[in-house]
Design a protein around this nucleic acid. Structure first.
Length: 427
RNA sequence: GUGGGCGUAGUGUAGUGGUUAACACGUCAGGUUGUGGCCCUGAAGAUCGUGGGUUCAAAUCCCAUCGCUCACCCCA
Protein backbone atom coordinates (compact mmCIF):
# COMPACT_ATOMS: atom_id res chain seq x y z
CA UNK A 1 0.00 0.00 0.00
CA UNK A 2 2.08 2.90 -1.25
CA UNK A 3 1.56 6.02 0.79
CA UNK A 4 1.26 8.13 -2.32
CA UNK A 5 -1.84 6.34 -3.55
CA UNK A 6 -5.37 7.42 -2.77
CA UNK A 7 -7.45 6.13 0.08
CA UNK A 8 -11.15 6.40 0.68
CA UNK A 9 -11.78 9.41 2.92
CA UNK A 10 -11.77 8.74 6.63
CA UNK A 11 -14.97 7.24 7.89
CA UNK A 12 -16.11 6.10 4.46
CA UNK A 13 -15.92 2.67 2.95
CA UNK A 14 -16.37 0.79 -0.26
CA UNK A 15 -19.20 -1.69 -0.33
CA UNK A 16 -17.40 -4.45 -2.17
CA UNK A 17 -19.03 -7.13 -4.31
CA UNK A 18 -18.65 -9.71 -1.55
CA UNK A 19 -20.72 -7.48 0.77
CA UNK A 20 -23.43 -6.69 -1.73
CA UNK A 21 -25.57 -9.72 -0.91
CA UNK A 22 -25.87 -8.44 2.66
CA UNK A 23 -26.84 -4.98 1.50
CA UNK A 24 -29.40 -6.08 -1.01
CA UNK A 25 -30.91 -8.48 1.50
CA UNK A 26 -31.23 -5.77 4.12
CA UNK A 27 -32.40 -3.10 1.67
CA UNK A 28 -34.83 -5.41 0.00
CA UNK A 29 -36.35 -6.59 3.25
CA UNK A 30 -36.74 -3.00 4.43
CA UNK A 31 -38.60 -2.00 1.30
CA UNK A 32 -40.94 -4.94 1.42
CA UNK A 33 -41.72 -4.63 5.13
CA UNK A 34 -42.37 -0.89 4.73
CA UNK A 35 -44.56 -1.54 1.71
CA UNK A 36 -46.51 -4.14 3.66
CA UNK A 37 -47.45 -1.40 6.12
CA UNK A 38 -48.56 0.84 3.25
CA UNK A 39 -45.50 3.06 3.30
CA UNK A 40 -44.27 4.50 0.02
CA UNK A 41 -40.72 5.21 -0.99
CA UNK A 42 -39.38 8.73 -1.20
CA UNK A 43 -35.89 9.87 -2.16
CA UNK A 44 -34.71 13.34 -1.25
CA UNK A 45 -31.53 15.02 -2.51
CA UNK A 46 -28.15 14.15 -1.03
CA UNK A 47 -27.67 17.82 -0.14
CA UNK A 48 -30.01 20.53 1.03
CA UNK A 49 -29.94 24.17 1.98
CA UNK A 50 -27.94 24.42 5.22
CA UNK A 51 -30.67 26.30 7.04
CA UNK A 52 -33.03 23.34 6.69
CA UNK A 53 -30.89 21.45 9.18
CA UNK A 54 -29.81 24.27 11.45
CA UNK A 55 -33.45 25.19 11.90
CA UNK A 56 -34.96 21.73 11.70
CA UNK A 57 -32.52 19.67 13.71
CA UNK A 58 -31.74 22.50 16.14
CA UNK A 59 -29.03 25.16 16.26
CA UNK A 60 -27.61 23.88 19.50
CA UNK A 61 -27.47 20.21 18.75
CA UNK A 62 -24.16 18.39 18.43
CA UNK A 63 -25.02 17.50 14.84
CA UNK A 64 -25.53 21.08 13.70
CA UNK A 65 -22.79 22.60 15.81
CA UNK A 66 -19.93 20.42 14.74
CA UNK A 67 -20.84 17.53 12.50
CA UNK A 68 -22.19 18.98 9.28
CA UNK A 69 -20.49 18.80 5.92
CA UNK A 70 -21.35 22.32 4.78
CA UNK A 71 -19.90 24.38 1.96
CA UNK A 72 -20.76 27.29 -0.25
CA UNK A 73 -21.52 26.29 -3.80
CA UNK A 74 -20.39 28.30 -6.79
CA UNK A 75 -23.54 30.39 -6.63
CA UNK A 76 -22.79 31.37 -3.05
CA UNK A 77 -25.51 29.29 -1.41
CA UNK A 78 -24.70 27.37 1.74
CA UNK A 79 -25.22 23.68 1.08
CA UNK A 80 -25.06 20.75 3.50
CA UNK A 81 -24.73 17.05 2.87
CA UNK A 82 -27.70 15.68 4.73
CA UNK A 83 -26.91 14.54 8.28
CA UNK A 84 -30.48 13.48 8.94
CA UNK A 85 -33.44 12.16 7.01
CA UNK A 86 -36.44 13.61 8.78
CA UNK A 87 -35.93 17.29 7.99
CA UNK A 88 -35.61 16.73 4.21
CA UNK A 89 -38.69 14.53 4.13
CA UNK A 90 -40.67 17.16 6.02
CA UNK A 91 -39.39 19.79 3.61
CA UNK A 92 -40.66 17.66 0.73
CA UNK A 93 -43.99 17.17 2.50
CA UNK A 94 -44.42 20.93 2.72
CA UNK A 95 -43.01 21.82 -0.67
CA UNK A 96 -44.98 19.17 -2.56
CA UNK A 97 -48.25 19.93 -0.84
CA UNK A 98 -48.63 16.47 0.66
CA UNK A 99 -51.10 17.80 3.19
CA UNK A 100 -53.58 17.51 0.30
CA UNK A 101 -53.19 13.75 0.33
CA UNK A 102 -55.07 11.46 2.70
CA UNK A 103 -53.43 11.78 6.13
CA UNK A 104 -51.24 10.42 7.47
CA UNK A 105 -48.78 10.36 4.62
CA UNK A 106 -46.64 7.25 5.07
CA UNK A 107 -43.14 7.40 3.62
CA UNK A 108 -39.95 5.38 3.79
CA UNK A 109 -36.47 5.95 2.49
CA UNK A 110 -33.01 4.54 2.42
CA UNK A 111 -29.78 6.25 1.57
CA UNK A 112 -26.52 7.83 2.66
CA UNK A 113 -26.06 10.40 5.42
CA UNK A 114 -23.05 12.43 6.43
CA UNK A 115 -21.72 13.50 9.78
CA UNK A 116 -18.23 14.66 10.59
CA UNK A 117 -17.26 12.50 13.55
CA UNK A 118 -14.44 10.28 14.74
CA UNK A 119 -15.21 6.90 13.22
CA UNK A 120 -15.38 3.73 15.27
CA UNK A 121 -17.23 0.44 15.18
CA UNK A 122 -20.66 1.12 13.73
CA UNK A 123 -20.03 4.83 13.32
CA UNK A 124 -18.94 6.45 10.08
CA UNK A 125 -18.81 9.78 8.32
CA UNK A 126 -20.86 8.44 5.50
CA UNK A 127 -23.41 5.97 6.77
CA UNK A 128 -26.72 4.64 5.57
CA UNK A 129 -30.13 4.66 7.12
CA UNK A 130 -33.44 3.06 6.55
CA UNK A 131 -36.09 5.45 7.79
CA UNK A 132 -39.79 5.91 7.94
CA UNK A 133 -42.04 8.92 8.53
CA UNK A 134 -45.78 9.03 9.18
CA UNK A 135 -46.89 12.62 8.83
CA UNK A 136 -50.26 14.15 9.57
CA UNK A 137 -51.66 12.01 12.37
CA UNK A 138 -51.16 12.79 16.04
CA UNK A 139 -52.59 9.61 17.47
CA UNK A 140 -50.63 7.20 19.61
CA UNK A 141 -51.76 4.40 17.33
CA UNK A 142 -49.48 5.74 14.61
CA UNK A 143 -46.61 5.79 17.10
CA UNK A 144 -47.24 2.15 17.77
CA UNK A 145 -47.48 1.41 14.05
CA UNK A 146 -44.11 3.00 13.37
CA UNK A 147 -42.51 1.21 16.29
CA UNK A 148 -43.98 -2.08 15.11
CA UNK A 149 -42.75 -1.49 11.57
CA UNK A 150 -39.15 -1.05 12.68
CA UNK A 151 -39.33 -4.01 14.97
CA UNK A 152 -40.89 -6.13 12.29
CA UNK A 153 -38.09 -5.31 9.89
CA UNK A 154 -35.32 -6.11 12.37
CA UNK A 155 -37.00 -9.34 13.37
CA UNK A 156 -37.63 -10.45 9.81
CA UNK A 157 -33.95 -9.99 9.02
CA UNK A 158 -33.25 -12.73 11.52
CA UNK A 159 -31.78 -10.62 14.31
CA UNK A 160 -32.35 -11.98 17.77
CA UNK A 161 -32.04 -10.61 21.27
CA UNK A 162 -33.24 -7.14 20.31
CA UNK A 163 -34.79 -4.86 22.83
CA UNK A 164 -37.04 -1.85 22.55
CA UNK A 165 -37.06 1.12 24.91
CA UNK A 166 -39.69 3.82 24.98
CA UNK A 167 -40.20 7.05 26.84
CA UNK A 168 -42.24 10.21 26.67
CA UNK A 169 -40.44 13.51 26.95
CA UNK A 170 -43.57 15.67 26.99
CA UNK A 171 -44.42 18.61 24.79
CA UNK A 172 -44.33 22.38 24.73
CA UNK A 173 -46.88 22.55 27.52
CA UNK A 174 -45.28 20.31 30.11
CA UNK A 175 -41.64 20.09 29.13
CA UNK A 176 -40.55 23.55 30.32
CA UNK A 177 -41.82 22.79 33.82
CA UNK A 178 -40.13 19.42 33.83
CA UNK A 179 -36.83 20.85 32.64
CA UNK A 180 -36.96 23.44 35.39
CA UNK A 181 -37.48 20.67 37.94
CA UNK A 182 -34.55 18.78 36.50
CA UNK A 183 -32.26 21.79 36.65
CA UNK A 184 -33.28 22.35 40.23
CA UNK A 185 -32.66 18.70 41.07
CA UNK A 186 -29.20 18.74 39.48
CA UNK A 187 -28.24 22.06 41.02
CA UNK A 188 -28.78 20.52 44.45
CA UNK A 189 -26.50 17.65 43.49
CA UNK A 190 -24.00 19.35 41.23
CA UNK A 191 -21.00 17.84 43.05
CA UNK A 192 -22.23 14.38 42.20
CA UNK A 193 -22.20 14.95 38.44
CA UNK A 194 -19.39 13.92 36.12
CA UNK A 195 -16.91 16.56 35.03
CA UNK A 196 -18.53 16.93 31.63
CA UNK A 197 -21.88 17.89 33.07
CA UNK A 198 -21.03 19.82 36.22
CA UNK A 199 -21.29 23.15 34.45
CA UNK A 200 -23.47 22.13 31.57
CA UNK A 201 -26.59 20.68 33.12
CA UNK A 202 -28.31 24.07 33.05
CA UNK A 203 -28.31 24.50 29.28
CA UNK A 204 -29.44 20.98 28.55
CA UNK A 205 -30.39 18.92 31.59
CA UNK A 206 -31.69 16.10 29.41
CA UNK A 207 -28.13 15.32 28.35
CA UNK A 208 -27.27 14.38 31.92
CA UNK A 209 -29.91 11.68 31.87
CA UNK A 210 -28.28 10.23 28.79
CA UNK A 211 -24.79 10.29 30.32
CA UNK A 212 -23.35 6.84 30.86
CA UNK A 213 -20.70 7.78 33.40
CA UNK A 214 -21.10 6.33 36.85
CA UNK A 215 -21.53 9.64 38.76
CA UNK A 216 -24.26 10.94 36.47
CA UNK A 217 -25.96 7.58 36.31
CA UNK A 218 -26.31 7.41 40.07
CA UNK A 219 -27.46 11.00 40.40
CA UNK A 220 -29.96 10.81 37.59
CA UNK A 221 -31.35 7.58 38.97
CA UNK A 222 -33.42 9.63 41.40
CA UNK A 223 -34.08 12.51 39.05
CA UNK A 224 -37.63 13.60 38.27
CA UNK A 225 -38.99 11.53 35.43
CA UNK A 226 -40.53 13.25 32.46
CA UNK A 227 -43.38 10.75 32.47
CA UNK A 228 -44.33 11.97 35.95
CA UNK A 229 -44.58 15.57 34.79
CA UNK A 230 -46.65 15.07 31.67
CA UNK A 231 -49.58 17.39 31.03
CA UNK A 232 -52.97 15.80 30.55
CA UNK A 233 -52.72 15.53 26.78
CA UNK A 234 -49.27 14.01 26.87
CA UNK A 235 -50.28 11.71 29.64
CA UNK A 236 -53.26 10.44 27.68
CA UNK A 237 -51.03 9.95 24.66
CA UNK A 238 -48.49 8.03 26.73
CA UNK A 239 -51.17 5.79 28.24
CA UNK A 240 -52.68 5.14 24.84
CA UNK A 241 -49.30 4.29 23.37
CA UNK A 242 -48.56 1.74 26.05
CA UNK A 243 -52.04 0.26 25.78
CA UNK A 244 -51.56 -0.17 22.04
CA UNK A 245 -48.10 -1.61 22.41
CA UNK A 246 -49.39 -4.07 25.01
CA UNK A 247 -51.94 -5.14 22.46
CA UNK A 248 -49.20 -5.72 19.89
CA UNK A 249 -47.16 -7.66 22.43
CA UNK A 250 -50.19 -9.78 23.17
CA UNK A 251 -50.56 -10.54 19.48
CA UNK A 252 -46.89 -11.41 19.16
CA UNK A 253 -46.10 -8.52 16.82
CA UNK A 254 -43.68 -7.20 19.41
CA UNK A 255 -41.78 -9.33 21.87
CA UNK A 256 -41.95 -6.64 24.52
CA UNK A 257 -40.74 -3.20 25.46
CA UNK A 258 -39.14 -1.40 28.33
CA UNK A 259 -40.04 1.97 29.72
CA UNK A 260 -36.82 3.89 30.11
CA UNK A 261 -37.11 7.24 31.86
CA UNK A 262 -33.52 8.02 30.95
CA UNK A 263 -34.10 7.72 27.25
CA UNK A 264 -33.77 11.09 25.52
CA UNK A 265 -32.80 11.97 22.00
CA UNK A 266 -30.14 14.34 20.77
CA UNK A 267 -32.16 16.12 18.14
CA UNK A 268 -34.31 19.08 19.15
CA UNK A 269 -37.38 18.31 17.12
CA UNK A 270 -38.61 15.40 19.21
CA UNK A 271 -41.59 15.58 21.55
CA UNK A 272 -43.75 13.08 23.38
CA UNK A 273 -42.89 9.58 22.20
CA UNK A 274 -39.24 8.61 21.79
CA UNK A 275 -37.91 5.09 21.32
CA UNK A 276 -34.78 3.09 20.55
CA UNK A 277 -33.94 -0.35 19.25
CA UNK A 278 -30.97 -1.98 20.94
CA UNK A 279 -28.98 -4.98 19.75
CA UNK A 280 -28.31 -8.09 21.80
CA UNK A 281 -24.60 -7.40 22.14
CA UNK A 282 -23.96 -4.00 23.61
CA UNK A 283 -20.48 -3.89 22.12
CA UNK A 284 -19.77 -0.83 20.05
CA UNK A 285 -22.80 1.30 19.51
CA UNK A 286 -25.57 0.50 21.91
CA UNK A 287 -28.31 1.72 19.61
CA UNK A 288 -29.01 0.43 16.15
CA UNK A 289 -31.86 2.80 15.54
CA UNK A 290 -34.31 5.14 17.11
CA UNK A 291 -36.90 7.76 16.54
CA UNK A 292 -39.81 9.60 17.94
CA UNK A 293 -42.58 12.07 17.45
CA UNK A 294 -41.77 15.53 16.07
CA UNK A 295 -45.01 17.46 16.13
CA UNK A 296 -43.44 20.95 16.08
CA UNK A 297 -41.09 20.31 13.18
CA UNK A 298 -43.24 20.95 10.12
CA UNK A 299 -44.33 24.30 11.47
CA UNK A 300 -40.75 25.20 12.34
CA UNK A 301 -39.86 24.51 8.71
CA UNK A 302 -42.56 26.87 7.50
CA UNK A 303 -45.44 24.48 6.94
CA UNK A 304 -48.86 24.29 8.53
CA UNK A 305 -48.87 22.78 12.05
CA UNK A 306 -48.69 19.08 11.29
CA UNK A 307 -47.76 16.22 13.62
CA UNK A 308 -45.33 13.52 12.58
CA UNK A 309 -43.40 10.52 13.82
CA UNK A 310 -40.64 8.38 12.39
CA UNK A 311 -37.50 6.40 12.98
CA UNK A 312 -34.12 5.87 11.39
CA UNK A 313 -32.12 2.69 11.68
CA UNK A 314 -28.45 2.47 10.81
CA UNK A 315 -27.73 0.02 8.03
CA UNK A 316 -24.13 -0.51 9.04
CA UNK A 317 -25.18 -1.26 12.59
CA UNK A 318 -27.77 -3.73 11.43
CA UNK A 319 -25.19 -5.42 9.20
CA UNK A 320 -22.68 -5.51 12.05
CA UNK A 321 -25.14 -7.36 14.24
CA UNK A 322 -26.33 -9.57 11.41
CA UNK A 323 -22.79 -10.74 10.79
CA UNK A 324 -22.01 -11.09 14.49
CA UNK A 325 -25.02 -13.38 14.82
CA UNK A 326 -23.99 -15.34 11.75
CA UNK A 327 -27.26 -14.74 9.95
CA UNK A 328 -26.97 -16.11 6.45
CA UNK A 329 -28.24 -14.13 3.50
CA UNK A 330 -29.17 -15.10 -0.05
CA UNK A 331 -26.06 -15.36 -2.20
CA UNK A 332 -24.94 -13.11 -5.00
CA UNK A 333 -25.35 -13.64 -8.71
CA UNK A 334 -24.27 -16.96 -10.18
CA UNK A 335 -22.41 -17.23 -13.47
CA UNK A 336 -24.25 -19.73 -15.64
CA UNK A 337 -21.80 -20.09 -18.49
CA UNK A 338 -18.20 -19.18 -19.24
CA UNK A 339 -17.44 -19.30 -22.96
CA UNK A 340 -14.14 -21.00 -23.69
CA UNK A 341 -12.80 -20.39 -27.17
CA UNK A 342 -9.86 -21.73 -29.16
CA UNK A 343 -8.80 -19.53 -32.05
CA UNK A 344 -9.93 -16.13 -33.26
CA UNK A 345 -12.76 -17.41 -35.42
CA UNK A 346 -14.18 -19.34 -32.49
CA UNK A 347 -13.91 -16.31 -30.29
CA UNK A 348 -15.84 -14.19 -32.78
CA UNK A 349 -18.56 -16.80 -33.05
CA UNK A 350 -18.65 -17.02 -29.25
CA UNK A 351 -19.49 -13.34 -28.94
CA UNK A 352 -22.68 -13.88 -30.91
CA UNK A 353 -23.56 -16.99 -28.92
CA UNK A 354 -22.96 -15.14 -25.66
CA UNK A 355 -25.35 -12.33 -26.52
CA UNK A 356 -27.91 -14.84 -27.70
CA UNK A 357 -27.61 -16.69 -24.40
CA UNK A 358 -27.90 -13.50 -22.35
CA UNK A 359 -31.10 -12.74 -24.23
CA UNK A 360 -32.48 -16.02 -22.87
CA UNK A 361 -31.69 -14.87 -19.34
CA UNK A 362 -28.43 -16.72 -18.84
CA UNK A 363 -25.52 -14.98 -17.10
CA UNK A 364 -22.59 -15.36 -19.44
CA UNK A 365 -18.91 -14.40 -19.41
CA UNK A 366 -16.62 -14.82 -22.40
CA UNK A 367 -13.25 -16.06 -21.12
CA UNK A 368 -10.34 -13.62 -21.45
CA UNK A 369 -8.48 -13.44 -24.76
CA UNK A 370 -4.95 -14.66 -25.15
CA UNK A 371 -5.17 -17.58 -22.80
CA UNK A 372 -4.82 -21.26 -23.46
CA UNK A 373 -7.74 -23.56 -23.04
CA UNK A 374 -6.52 -24.95 -19.77
CA UNK A 375 -6.27 -21.49 -18.38
CA UNK A 376 -9.73 -20.58 -19.59
CA UNK A 377 -11.14 -23.68 -17.94
CA UNK A 378 -9.43 -22.76 -14.70
CA UNK A 379 -10.87 -19.32 -15.04
CA UNK A 380 -14.36 -20.73 -15.51
CA UNK A 381 -13.94 -22.92 -12.48
CA UNK A 382 -12.67 -20.17 -10.23
CA UNK A 383 -15.55 -17.92 -11.25
CA UNK A 384 -17.85 -20.59 -9.91
CA UNK A 385 -19.57 -20.99 -13.26
CA UNK A 386 -22.10 -23.77 -13.67
CA UNK A 387 -21.04 -24.61 -17.20
CA UNK A 388 -18.19 -24.07 -19.62
CA UNK A 389 -19.20 -23.76 -23.25
CA UNK A 390 -16.25 -24.86 -25.34
CA UNK A 391 -15.84 -23.90 -28.97
CA UNK A 392 -12.76 -24.62 -31.10
CA UNK A 393 -11.88 -24.39 -34.77
CA UNK A 394 -12.85 -28.05 -35.26
CA UNK A 395 -16.27 -27.49 -33.76
CA UNK A 396 -16.93 -24.52 -36.00
CA UNK A 397 -16.64 -26.78 -39.02
CA UNK A 398 -19.01 -29.29 -37.45
CA UNK A 399 -21.43 -26.65 -36.21
CA UNK A 400 -21.31 -27.87 -32.62
CA UNK A 401 -19.90 -26.85 -29.26
CA UNK A 402 -19.28 -28.71 -26.01
CA UNK A 403 -21.25 -27.83 -22.93
CA UNK A 404 -19.42 -29.11 -19.89
CA UNK A 405 -20.83 -29.06 -16.39
CA UNK A 406 -18.44 -27.70 -13.79
CA UNK A 407 -20.61 -28.84 -10.93
CA UNK A 408 -20.49 -32.54 -11.70
CA UNK A 409 -17.59 -34.72 -12.90
CA UNK A 410 -17.13 -35.64 -16.52
CA UNK A 411 -20.51 -34.44 -17.57
CA UNK A 412 -20.52 -32.87 -21.00
CA UNK A 413 -22.63 -32.93 -24.11
CA UNK A 414 -22.44 -31.66 -27.65
CA UNK A 415 -24.80 -28.85 -28.52
CA UNK A 416 -25.55 -27.09 -31.77
CA UNK A 417 -24.56 -23.46 -32.10
CA UNK A 418 -28.01 -22.22 -31.20
CA UNK A 419 -28.56 -20.11 -28.09
CA UNK A 420 -31.99 -21.58 -27.51
CA UNK A 421 -30.58 -25.12 -27.57
CA UNK A 422 -27.66 -24.24 -25.31
CA UNK A 423 -29.92 -22.37 -22.90
CA UNK A 424 -32.14 -25.42 -22.65
CA UNK A 425 -29.17 -27.73 -22.12
CA UNK A 426 -27.75 -25.50 -19.39
CA UNK A 427 -30.99 -25.32 -17.47
C1' G B 1 -12.45 17.34 20.68
C1' U B 2 -9.99 13.37 24.44
C1' G B 3 -7.53 8.66 25.36
C1' G B 4 -5.61 3.36 24.20
C1' G B 5 -3.82 -0.27 20.40
C1' C B 6 -1.67 -1.07 15.65
C1' G B 7 1.02 0.13 10.78
C1' U B 8 5.95 -5.67 6.64
C1' A B 9 3.42 -7.85 -1.13
C1' G B 10 -3.91 -7.79 -2.95
C1' U B 11 -5.17 -10.53 1.97
C1' G B 12 -3.38 -12.96 6.54
C1' U B 13 1.14 -13.43 8.97
C1' A B 14 6.84 -14.51 10.22
C1' G B 15 10.99 -11.85 11.05
C1' U B 16 13.19 -7.49 17.79
C1' G B 17 20.23 -4.62 14.99
C1' G B 18 24.05 -7.76 10.55
C1' U B 19 24.64 -10.63 3.54
C1' U B 20 19.57 -10.43 -2.41
C1' A B 21 12.93 -9.31 3.96
C1' A B 22 10.28 -15.18 4.64
C1' C B 23 5.62 -18.17 4.47
C1' A B 24 0.45 -19.13 3.29
C1' C B 25 -3.76 -17.75 0.41
C1' G B 26 -4.78 -15.08 -3.97
C1' U B 27 -3.12 -13.56 -9.14
C1' C B 28 -0.59 -14.95 -13.78
C1' A B 29 2.18 -18.77 -16.64
C1' G B 30 3.52 -23.90 -17.40
C1' G B 31 2.84 -29.48 -16.27
C1' U B 32 3.19 -32.01 -24.91
C1' U B 33 -1.08 -32.75 -29.04
C1' G B 34 -8.75 -29.03 -27.45
C1' U B 35 -11.03 -29.67 -20.93
C1' G B 36 -11.61 -27.08 -14.71
C1' G B 37 -11.38 -28.78 -9.43
C1' C B 38 -6.46 -31.95 -6.26
C1' C B 39 -1.29 -31.92 -7.02
C1' C B 40 3.62 -30.13 -8.94
C1' U B 41 6.89 -26.17 -11.07
C1' G B 42 7.77 -21.16 -12.09
C1' A B 43 6.77 -15.81 -12.28
C1' A B 44 5.00 -11.14 -10.90
C1' G B 45 4.06 -8.45 -6.54
C1' A B 46 6.81 -4.84 -0.38
C1' U B 47 11.37 1.78 -1.58
C1' C B 48 9.09 -2.95 5.81
C1' G B 49 3.20 4.04 6.41
C1' U B 50 6.31 8.73 6.01
C1' G B 51 10.34 11.94 7.74
C1' G B 52 14.34 12.49 10.91
C1' G B 53 17.83 10.52 14.62
C1' U B 54 21.21 6.68 17.19
C1' U B 55 24.76 2.97 15.00
C1' C B 56 30.08 0.47 11.13
C1' A B 57 25.00 -1.63 10.30
C1' A B 58 17.66 -0.47 11.50
C1' A B 59 11.74 -3.72 9.33
C1' U B 60 14.00 -4.27 14.23
C1' C B 61 16.07 1.13 19.00
C1' C B 62 14.50 6.69 19.74
C1' C B 63 11.58 11.10 18.19
C1' A B 64 8.05 13.25 15.13
C1' U B 65 4.27 12.88 11.65
C1' C B 66 0.40 10.57 8.91
C1' G B 67 -2.97 6.64 8.56
C1' C B 68 -5.97 2.66 10.46
C1' U B 69 -8.57 0.89 14.61
C1' C B 70 -11.08 0.71 19.46
C1' A B 71 -13.24 3.55 23.30
C1' C B 72 -15.12 8.33 25.44
C1' C B 73 -18.44 12.11 23.62
C1' C B 74 -22.66 12.00 20.49
C1' C B 75 -25.68 9.40 17.53
C1' A B 76 -27.89 5.62 13.04
Amino acid sequence: MASSSFQAPRGTSDILPEDQPYWSYVWGTAASVAASFGYERIDTPIFEETALFSRGVGEETEVVEKQMYSFDDLGGDSITLKPDGTAPVCRAYIQRGMHNQPQPVRLFYQGPYFRYERPQAGRFRQFHQFGVEAIGDASAQVDAEVIELGWSWLASLGLTGLSLSINSIGDGVCRPGHLAKLVEYFSEREDGLCSDHKGRYRSNPLRVLDCKKAPCVSVSGGAPRSVDDLCDDCSDHWDELRRTLDLLVGEGALSGYEENARLVRGLDYYNRTVFEYEPAERKGQSTIGGGGRYDPLIEILGGPPTPGIGFAIGMERVLLNLKAQGVSVPGGPVIDIVCVHIGDAAHDRMLALASGLRATGRTVIVAPMGRGMRSQMRYANSKGARYALILGERDLENGVATLRSLKTDDDQTEVSLDPAVIAEASR
